[in-house]
Structures are given as C-alpha cells and as structure tokens.
Lab assay of single mutants.
Amino acid sequence: MASQGTKRSYEQMETDGERQNATEIRASVGKMIGGIGRFYIQMCTELKLSDYEGRLIQNSLTIERMVLSAFDERRNKYLEEHPSAGKDPKKTGGPIYRRVNGKWMRELILYDKEEIRRIWRQANNGDDATAGLTHMMIWHSNLNDATYQRTRALVRTGMDPRMCSLMQGSTLPRRSGAAGAAVKGVGTMVMELVRMIKRGINDRNFWRGENGRKTRIAYERMCNILKGKFQTAAQKAMMDQVRESRNPGNAEFEDLTFLARSALILRGSVAHKSCLPACVYGPAVASGYDFEREGYSLVGIDPFRLLQNSQVYSLIRPNENPAHKSQLVWMACHSAAFEDLRVLSFIKGTKVLPRGKLSTRGVQIASNENMETMESSTLELRSRYWAIRTRSGGNTNQQRASAGQISIQPTFSVQRNLPFDRTTIMAAFNGNTEGRTSDMRTEIIRMMESARPEDVSFQGRGVFELSDEKAASPIVPSFDMSNEGSYFFGDNAEEYDN
C-alpha cells in the first residue's frame, strides 16, 4: 500500500469516517454492505422474486439502478423543472426478469421514488447511507470498465484509444464523492478537466460571474484530485501550473494530454476495490451473516471469500459463452479491467482472455432483445487465490505491452514486471518541450526514458491461498515475461453508450 500519510484510507472515504482504527473501519464497511443486503432482500420480497430470480444479476442491476435514481437529487430536480413526455419524475423502474413456464419473461416495473427511498433508509437504520449508494455506483463503473473500451470518449477529448488503461471510473457520476474520486484513473480526471476547458473556450461566460466562481472551485478541486494521483514531483508541479492558470485554454489542454500520456509509464495511484452486485450481499445477509459484527474490507480476502460461497446467475444470449460472461463479471467484481492478464489468470486459476476474444456482450439486456431465446446460467466467480488490492500504480518500471492497449494499471499487489510499449508511448511525445512547463516536461520525458521494462514492481508481494486469511504465506508467482498482458488488445469491444 502506498503510505497513507495525511490521506484517509478508502474504507474511511467509503464510510465518510473520520480517523478510525482498522477494526472500526471493518465494522463501518460491514455496516454499509449489510445495509445493501437488507435493502436487496426487501426489494425481492416487494417484487415477489423467487430465490433464483433474486440471484439473477440482471435483476440486481435494475434494483441497484432504481435506488441510485431515487437518490439522484440533481436529476430529480431537473426532471421536475423540465417535464418530458412519458417520463414521470417521481417514478423509477426498469426490467425485471421472471421464469414463467420454463421461459424467461421481461416485466417492466415502476415504483415511486419516495417508496424506494423509504425501503433503502429502513434497511440502513434510517440513514441515507450515501456510502452504500456510492458502492453500487463503483460496481456499475467497474462493470462498464470491463465491458467497454471507451474509444470515442478518448478520441473526443484528444487522447489515444490505446490509453484505455487510464480510464478507470470514466462512467462514474460526478456525485460519487471521495470514494469515487479515489477509483478514477488519470485519464478519467484528464477527460473531465478537458471537457471543462473546452467549454470555457467555447463559452465566454463559463468562468464568469457567480456560476463561474463555482465552476472555478470545481476545476481547482479536480486538479488537486489529479495532482494527488501522480507520484513524481515534476508531474505534480505541472498540475500546479494547470490549476493556477488564470484562464484555462489550449496550453492547459496540451499540458493535460501530455500528463495523461506520461501516466502510461509514470503511473498514478488509483484505488481498486472489489464492489459486488447487491444480489451477492442480499443472500449472505439472508443466511444470517452479520457483516457489521464480522467486519468487512473491500481490499482484502473478504470479497473473494464471499464470491467463493455465492451463487449468481445471468441471462445468456443464444451465441454467448457462459464462461466468457463469467470472466467479464469476475473482472468487474475485482475492479480488474486494466490489470495484467498474466496476473489475473494466476489468481483466477483459469486463463483470462483479452476482451476481443470473449464471445459475450454486456450483462444488460436491451429492451428490444428477444426473450424467447434467452437461457440462463451460473456465473463462475470463484478464484484459485486471493491478493491484496493496490492503491498505487506500482513502481515506475515497465515491460512490453500489446498493440491495442499500451500499458496497464495494476489492481493487485503482486510481484511482476509491468508491461508497456515504450516505443509507441515515446513516439507520441513530439519533443515539444517549450513553453512555461518546459523544464517539467524535459524531466518527465527523462524519467520515462530511463524506466526499464525488466524491473520488478511490488517486490516480494504474492497471492494467498483462500485458507490464508491473515495473509501469512505469500506465494510469489513467476510470469512468462514475453507473454501478452493487455485486456483490450487489438480490440473490438462495443462502445459504451450512456
């Protein structure tokens, strides 16, 4: 783990906690998980779902989305002020799938948001429990990260689609708070800032007046979040320049895209947490497990152990491969979309394939898809080993990566060399080191050039047997250095459309 220093740990961010010791953190995270579980059980009762239907990941996603929508204050306010045809701002819903006479049927349900809020609060001892809501947002974000390569979004903001390893959390809503900021990748933060800068260039009043003052505060806050992700002084200094700019424009845009590229080699610290679907927490609570009393951590053995003992089902389209669908969801559960496939294969105990080789589309089923041909199958979400999630980018030494994705962002704290394609990355730096950030740029390029592919990161860190909950005997895996390590390699994943 990167030293926490003055930073709060993510469990504290996750639970809005002030400084807590490890036991208190485990208890408050457990409380959050228990609340999600209780809410899910109650919703299944309301909807009269069978046990099997309640364990269907598509039903879980609909129920999670309903509660997130019920608590989305800004959108609710907007919907009330701008009524649109056929949208009731006070209601929320989605597809629920039921097994009827041996076939899967889709039923569109509609609930009062007020009623959903009441059920959620009741499951969370009367609190709004925003930490639990954020947790579900991060699960949705991790699922998107594993399912889609955001080529269009990258290109629109002047970045290269091969930089997708920097895009963790790119679909997280803005209201996801400190826990959300911690899991956002460098590219995601750059993209958010670039969008602001572009608006400022096109709209003279963007930075002016009372609204402009708020915009400015948001801009500086985002700059500080991004600065905190960088691990070298030169990158941090460049972020200070971007933040202090009187009138952010093209120079800042250039600096930010430069920094994003540099992060492929001088990786930023991005938190990883295993956020599971509500249909995993519900049955665990129903079986009598007391998360608050037992304590829970999002970055240790607990999620692995929970998945070892969970039964989750998914709808499967006619030509999809259930094992591939399982891999997709497994990666999402562990926030591992940008991790090295060699490491993932070792931990999972079966070969993890790149996205383009998977015969599976996303987990969600569109409303126009034919239910007649839908089957369902068990998702295999178990693992051979477990490993500690990392909050750091690993040290800054790398190795060759593949054509589709030119770097990785480690999820697990496991000893290995970190793949990246130096030639491709360095070719993108057209040696432009003039301007006010020239000395920093020169320094950053120097550090990137001296990074050695064969150097090892996370020295001495290994994986653990599932029986080793105290992480007492690390097993340090050895990897084939020459092997392909990137998930979005030469990829044809669908595009994420909101």
Rank of each mutant, 00 (worst) to 15 (best):
residue 204 R to A: 04
residue 32 M to V: 11
residue 482 S to V: 13
residue 482 S to A: 04
residue 289 Y to T: 12
residue 366 A to D: 12
residue 140 H to R: 05
residue 396 T to L: 12
residue 462 G to A: 10
residue 116 I to C: 15
residue 496 Y to I: 08
residue 216 R to G: 10
residue 483 N to K: 13
residue 468 D to F: 06
residue 493 A to G: 12
residue 68 L to D: 11
residue 468 D to I: 05
residue 238 M to E: 04
residue 254 E to D: 13
residue 199 R to M: 01
residue 139 W to H: 07
residue 389 R to P: 02
residue 220 E to Y: 11
residue 60 S to G: 13
residue 77 K to E: 08
residue 253 F to A: 14
residue 147 T to P: 03
residue 297 S to M: 04
residue 131 A to Q: 15
residue 179 A to V: 09
residue 443 E to W: 05
residue 191 M to N: 01
residue 268 G to L: 00
residue 178 A to I: 08
residue 212 G to Q: 03
residue 220 E to Q: 13
residue 217 I to D: 08
residue 93 G to K: 06
residue 12 Q to C: 04
residue 184 K to Q: 14
residue 29 V to M: 11
residue 239 M to N: 05
residue 231 Q to R: 15
residue 227 K to Q: 13
residue 146 A to S: 14
residue 261 R to V: 06
residue 209 G to K: 11
residue 173 P to E: 09
residue 404 G to N: 14
residue 391 R to N: 05
residue 122 Q to W: 04
residue 39 F to W: 15
residue 284 A to S: 11
residue 31 K to A: 15
residue 243 R to S: 15
residue 337 A to D: 04
residue 324 H to D: 11
residue 188 T to K: 12
residue 297 S to Q: 02
residue 418 L to C: 13
residue 291 F to M: 15
residue 317 R to D: 01
residue 279 C to K: 03
residue 430 N to P: 00
residue 240 D to C: 11
residue 309 N to A: 13
residue 321 N to D: 08
residue 459 Q to P: 09
residue 187 G to M: 11
residue 393 G to H: 10
residue 200 G to K: 09
residue 360 T to V: 13
residue 162 R to P: 05
residue 218 A to Y: 08
residue 318 P to C: 04
residue 198 K to D: 07
residue 215 T to K: 13
residue 294 E to K: 01
residue 43 M to C: 11
residue 201 I to T: 11
residue 464 F to L: 10
residue 87 K to E: 11
residue 161 P to V: 14
residue 377 S to C: 14
residue 325 K to M: 11
residue 472 A to E: 11
residue 100 V to G: 05
residue 334 H to Y: 13
residue 337 A to E: 10
residue 64 E to F: 08
residue 105 M to V: 09
residue 230 F to V: 12
residue 279 C to Y: 07
residue 7 K to H: 00
residue 8 R to E: 02
residue 379 L to S: 02
residue 228 G to H: 00
residue 479 F to D: 01
residue 251 A to I: 14
residue 27 A to C: 00
residue 391 R to L: 09
residue 357 K to V: 05
residue 90 K to W: 02
residue 497 D to Q: 02
residue 11 E to M: 08
residue 347 I to P: 01
residue 380 E to N: 04
residue 357 K to Y: 14
residue 191 M to I: 14
residue 405 Q to R: 10
residue 401 A to E: 14
residue 406 I to W: 00
residue 254 E to Y: 09
residue 247 N to W: 04
residue 32 M to T: 09
residue 369 E to H: 05
residue 494 E to G: 09
residue 492 N to F: 03
residue 316 I to P: 00
residue 205 N to G: 13
residue 393 G to P: 07
residue 3 S to T: 15
residue 4 Q to I: 10
residue 190 V to M: 13
residue 241 Q to I: 06
residue 270 V to E: 00
residue 279 C to E: 05
residue 341 L to D: 01
residue 444 I to S: 11
residue 72 D to W: 06
residue 360 T to G: 06
residue 81 E to A: 00
residue 475 I to W: 13
residue 439 D to R: 01
residue 117 R to N: 03
residue 33 I to N: 10
residue 474 P to E: 07
residue 390 T to Y: 13
residue 317 R to Y: 13
residue 348 K to M: 04
residue 491 D to A: 12
residue 465 E to G: 13
residue 14 E to P: 01
residue 186 V to P: 03
residue 390 T to W: 04
residue 335 S to R: 00
residue 100 V to Y: 14
residue 453 P to V: 14
residue 268 G to T: 06
residue 485 G to M: 06
residue 402 S to T: 13
residue 334 H to R: 05
residue 82 H to Q: 14
residue 141 S to R: 02
residue 44 C to V: 12
residue 134 T to W: 00
residue 224 N to Q: 15
residue 227 K to M: 06
residue 422 R to T: 11
residue 491 D to Q: 04
residue 78 Y to K: 04
residue 174 R to N: 03
residue 173 P to Y: 03
residue 210 E to Q: 09
residue 119 I to K: 03
residue 373 T to H: 02
residue 470 K to Y: 03
residue 283 P to M: 13
residue 469 E to F: 13
residue 105 M to P: 00
residue 450 S to R: 13
residue 113 K to T: 07
residue 327 Q to W: 07
residue 221 R to V: 05
residue 413 S to R: 10
residue 126 G to C: 07
residue 229 K to Y: 08
residue 247 N to Y: 07
